[in-house]
Each structure stands twice: as C-alpha cells, then as structure tokens.
C-alpha cells in the first residue's frame, strides 16, 4: 500500500493508471475530460482501473458509484475522499 504525499502525486498516479489500463496517451487526460464519452473507457476498463487503485491505496470503492462519475477530475476527487476517510478511520 502506498502513502500519498500530496494531491499532485495522487493525481499523476491516477492518471498514469488510467492511461496504462485504457491505453491512452497521458497527455490526452486532464481533469475535465469525460471518462466514457471522450476517453472511451467502458465499464470493464473502469473496473480494472478501480481494482488497481483499490490495491494500490488500500481503499474500497463502490463499483456502482464509480460508474456514475463523469470526468477524470471527479474520479480523482472521489479517490482522494476515500483515502482521507481511510486515514480518519485508521
């Protein structure tokens, strides 16, 4: 399980995970981009990304909730909130 040093490294790490799993150039991913419509990430790719992030950060995310998320920025915020909750619970 990795520790998050700051928001920037979390953001970079999540974008790298998305880019690797969905085989998209990192340069085409920013906070405002739509995950499904613009990046073409479907539900099976989303689950692979979520599984990787869960393992990496030791968090548990709700599968249905993540499918409702529209943009990369919203996804990063969502993961960050889960990490903060985990830290508070620890």
């Amino acid at each position: 399980m990795k520790q998050i040093k700051n928001d920037t490294s979390l953001r970079e790490s999540i974008i790298k995970t998305i880019a690797t799993i969905a085989r998209i150039n990192e340069k085409n991913i920013d906070d405002s981009v739509l995950i499904r419509e613009e990046l073409g990430i479907d539900s099976i790719m989303s689950l692979e990304i979520v599984a990787q992030i869960e393992r990496h950060y030791g968090i548990v995310v709700d599968e249905e909730e993540t499918l409702q998320i529209k943009t990369v920025g919203e996804f990063i915020d969502y993961v960050q909130s889960k990490i903060i909750n985990r830290c508070h619970e620890a």
Partner: peptide
C-alpha cells in the same frame, strides 16, 4: 441493479487477483 452490482464485484475481484 443487484445483478449488475454482483457482476461488477465479480470482475473487480478478478482484476485484483490479476494485479
């Protein structure tokens, strides 16, 4: 909805095992 959640959990578990 419940069936979809079951399927999603199943695949998440597969991807966690694979990773």
């Amino acid at each position: 909805k419940d069936v979809r959640v079951k399927t999603l959990k199943h695949f998440k578990s597969i991807f966690k095992t694979l990773s």
